[in-house]
Amino acid sequence: MALLALVTMPVIENWKRKPKDSFPLSYYPMFSQNRDGRTTLTYILGSDQAGNRHFIPYHRAGTGGMNQVRKIIRKQAEYDPTGLCQRVAKAVSRQNKAPDIRIDTVRIIRGEFILDHFFAGNHVPERSEEICACAVERKSSHTQTDRL
């Protein structure tokens, strides 16, 4: 009975001004939020010389699952955007496959997407703010050969 009371106790968080989630006792707030047809996301965008945009995979920015790294990107974009940008640019520079090999600039973007537009095929955010940008520096093939 005590365990059951403990497990159901977090329900009071629903009516708190600043609810706090925990583990393993949670009030399970996911799916209750009203998105109102739009969402804001901090993400990493790469661009090549031809001006093509490429979404950079989350795992270039951190360790863990997608949702965990998404929160890490959002946090780091607030307190150390340059560090995040440079780390991702370095990770991209180590790749030798397309599209990473073509990317020459990495940008940290906070963008607001309209769901109707996005799922109609328009992947460009309605509003966006560039937080940081940095160049992808690659070692020349000559240098790599020298090392070998």
Binding site: I56, P57, Y58, M66
Partner: peptide
């Protein structure tokens, strides 16, 4: 789904 597409998974 949007997050997964934009974050490349």
């Amino acid at each position: 789904t949007l997050r997964k597409i934009v974050l490349g998974t």
